[in-house]
């Protein structure tokens, strides 16, 4: 093995700093998970193991309702944003470079850069106006809003895959009598599929986690899990929120693991 001329591990205190950062990142989650199994009411003293708070949360109709809302919105937003992101990624990689391409990238990734609160206020104004004129108060507003800010999360992995793909494969398909549509359907799409699933999963997780935009534009009775929990915290800290958070954490970990498995290189 060749020696590296520079290795960060040679710097004094590297390990200490790394350990502290990891502790700061994960200690709170450990506390959350542990206390979700606490027997008593107190968020600070351990009174023995129990699944009581999971039972309490599960029996709560408001929690059930919020869970259903969260899953409907996240699923619809993930599908919608991934479909749009796939089209955008194809549109920005499978054509000759054009003037303003960088500007288009910035436009597509706008939700990553504009402060979320600004988007939320803007959406509040627009949805209020539409609600007033149409009278529609369903989950549609939340789905469309979530789909919009989820697009960059789906777009980035899909575009990366399209850019990394060997273009000779598409040339070879055309050489072997495939029409442009057949080339897309039989070569590009199958090779892109893992990135599309990965993008959908990132979009799903992003939607599931959103508080700010949801809080601004939801109609009464449209609480998602995050907004429900926020509401609970305003009254009294109850450990059932710990249980719900732990369940969300578990779901997210499963999805992110899938994302990792789908995007890693198979060499």
């Amino acid at each position: 093995m060749a020696r590296r001329s520079f290795s960060v591990t040679d710097l004094p205190g590297f390990s200490t700093v790394a350990m502290m950062v990891f502790a700061a990142l994960y200690a709170p989650m450990v506390v959350l998970v542990v206390y979700s199994f606490n027997q008593g009411q107190s968020p600070a003293t351990w009174e023995g193991f129990s699944l009581d708070w999971y039972r309490v949360a599960w029996a709560n109709d408001e929690v059930k309702n919020a869970t259903v809302n969260s899953l409907i919105i996240a699923t619809c937003a993930a599908i919608l944003s991934t479909a749009l992101a796939t089209l955008a990624a194809l549109g920005t990689t499978r054509r000759k470079g054009f003037k303003g391409q960088t500007f288009i990238y910035a436009m597509i990734n706008q939700p990553l850069m504009v402060p979320e609160i600004v988007t939320a206020v803007a959406l509040l104004l627009v949805t209020a106006a539409i609600k007033k004129s149409t009278g529609y108060t369903g989950l549609g507003y939340l789905i469309v809003a979530h789909a919009a800010f989820c697009i960059p999360f789906a777009y980035l992995p899909i575009r990366a895959r399209l850019e990394g793909m060997d273009l000779t494969l598409e040339t070879a398909a055309a050489d072997l009598y495939a029409s442009p549509w057949q080339t897309f359907r039989r070569v590009t799409l199958p090779l892109l599929a893992p990135a599309i699933f990965a993008g959908a999963m990132l979009a799903f997780v992003t939607s599931l986690d959103d508080v700010v935009i949801t809080e601004f534009i939801k109609s009464p009775g449209q609480d998602t899990l995050p907004t429900y929990m926020l509401g609970q915290l305003r009254r009294a800290m109850k450990p059932d929120v710990n249980a719900i958070s732990t369940a969300l954490l578990a779901l997210t970990l499963v999805l992110l693991s899938l994302f990792y498995l789908l995007t890693r290189k198979k060499d």
């Binding site: 060997d166 000779t168 494969l169 040339t171 070879a172 398909a173 055309a174 050489d175 072997l176 009598y177 495939a178 029409s179 070569v187 199958p190 090779l191």
Partner: peptide, 19 residues
């Protein structure tokens, strides 16, 4: 276009479909 020409190519990189 290439798909309407009765000629086929062997590419330098082979370009075999990995899937």
């Amino acid at each position: 276009p290439p798909n309407r020409r009765p000629v086929n190519t062997v590419f330098q990189s082979y370009a075999l479909f990995p899937h």
